[in-house]
């Protein structure tokens, strides 16, 4: 941090982005700062603090749930709206992040800005088909969360763009969901694996199924072959077994290793069996 000359605390996303794009100084945006402050690149000259941006909300818009980028884990954990959405899975996931003191400081935007295996939200957002609104020099782009870490998305949030908000589509509102953080102990910071599972059934038939796996690598992934097996199917021992088998294959493909695979498979099996 010894090159920092400017401390900016803009009040609008536009002003923040202008600071980032100013070619005269190297700038970086920091929200909660729980990770960024200690790992700031040495060359940064302008520390752009996002604390004053009006993005700390959790609200409904249209039929969607919208979470502002600077909403803290604690705010999401305690949001009545989030607690009611998709069985409260977003709040439950927020509660599993590190410690209360981190949850008071860290934001959802910071948690997804860069891929890390210890991030909590990516698996959840991937599983809920979330979209992300990002402010770039060419305007606001709305992209699927799954595109955020793809090379085609050529922006680096916090350096040349800003995450504004996360949109959880209304269709997920009544999904039955579960988030599992499987770690050495209840409150371990790092997990062996995180698992998001979401299901939407109608008349005994699986309409939607999401299985998203995190913590194995910086980017979460969806166990798509397992999802496919059950989509449109009735939950029956045969179809469940087939899905479980596919989940194992998906995890093998991700080089999860035997132990993590077994854990994921049993947690998935339990989740599905509870739906029967």
């Amino acid at each position: 941090m010894n090159h920092i000359k400017y401390y900016s605390f803009p009040e609008t996303p536009g002003a923040a982005l202008a600071g980032l794009l100013n070619r005269k100084t190297e700038a970086m945006a920091v929200a909660g700062g729980t990770l960024a402050a200690k790992t700031l690149p040495e060359t940064v000259e302008n520390f752009v603090d996002l604390k004053n941006l009006p993005l700390g909300y959790v609200k409904k818009r249209g039929g969607d749930l919208v979470i502002g980028a600077t909403a803290t884990f604690d705010a999401i954990d305690n949001s009545k709206l989030a607690k009611r959405w998709a069985g409260g899975v977003i709040s439950a996931a927020a509660a599993r992040c590190s410690s209360q003191l981190i949850r008071n400081m860290a934001t959802i935007g910071g948690n997804i800005a860069r891929p890390h295996s210890f991030n909590i939200f990516p698996a959840v957002l991937l599983g809920l088909d979330a979209k992300v609104r990002v402010l770039t020099k060419t305007g606001v782009k709305t992209i699927p969360f799954s595109a955020l870490y793809q090379p085609e998305f050529r922006f680096r949030p916090g350096r040349d763009s800003l995450i504004l908000e996360i949109i959880i589509p209304g269709k997920t509102r009544n999904w039955a969901c579960r988030f599992e953080k499987f770690a050495k102990t209840e409150a371990s910071w790092e997990a062996y694996l995180t698992l998001f599972m979401g299901i939407w059934m109608k008349a005994g038939v699986v309409k939607e199924l999401r299985v998203a796996v995190g913590a194995l690598s910086p980017r979460p992934f969806r166990a798509e072959s397992a999802e496919r097996v059950l989509s449109g199917a009735k939950l029956a021992p045969v179809s469940i077994d087939a899905a479980v088998l596919e989940l194992g294959r998906d995890l093998d493909a991700a080089r999860a290793g035997e132990f993590k695979k077994e854990v994921a498979v049993s947690l998935f099996k339990r989740f599905i069996k509870e739906r029967v």
Partner: peptide, 16 residues
């Protein structure tokens, strides 16, 4: 207004 970790907060960001 919230409990926070002083060791993670760059001192200059405590302005105001």
């Amino acid at each position: 207004g919230k409990p926070a970790l002083a060791c993670l907060i760059p001192a200059f960001t405590a302005h105001g």
